[in-house]
């Protein structure tokens, strides 16, 4: 069997040097992809860093996180966890993220009270249910905000 040529079916066999070249090319493209990814990651990190630290960008990001969190909370209670996670994700530190999640919980309660209109006072009288309402408005976002400690 030659190192190079065609077999009976006309399929071209690969020579050792070609294989090495191909491997190098593959390796090169993988490296490039890794590089690209690294670059992209670094860029993302940079953007995230800026979002987390530059006041203007940070404010926009928090607003976006709150809106997304509210939408999610409107659909399902797990949205409160996600809302807290979103807000914390754009916070400069875990500690600030937890504070942000508490703030998100406050926003949730205000929006909730507004949606209830005249029934808001009635809900306040719904003990012990109202305790659950308040605890979940703060507790679930704070739970979600713990994600900030991992990212």
């Amino acid at each position: 069997m030659s190192a190079s040529g065609s077999d009976e079916n006309g399929t071209r066999e690969t020579t050792g040097s070609e294989a090495s070249e191909g491997a190098l090319e593959n390796c090169g493209s993988e490296n490039r992809a890794v590089e690209r990814r690294k670059t992209s990651l670094e860029r993302s990190r940079t953007v995230l860093e800026r979002v987390r630290t530059e006041p203007g960008l940070h404010a926009v990001a928090v607003a976006g996180a709150v809106v997304l969190g509210l939408l999610a909370s409107w659909l399902h209670w797990f949205g409160l966890v996600l809302g807290g996670a979103f807000v914390a994700f754009v916070s400069p530190s875990l500690r600030r993220g937890i504070v942000g999640a508490v703030g998100f919980g406050l926003v949730v309660l205000v929006v909730f009270a507004l949606t209830l209109g005249g029934s808001a006072w009635t809900v306040l009288e719904m003990t012990p249910v109202v305790y659950l309402v308040i605890a979940s408005a703060f507790g679930l976002p704070v739970l979600g905000s713990l994600l900030r400690g991992l990212l």
Partner: peptide, 18 residues
Amino acid sequence: ELLSQFAPLSGRAWNTAS
């Protein structure tokens, strides 16, 4: 189940409040 009923904004109970 409790959260499905009473979580702020999404709780089923609040459908009736409005």
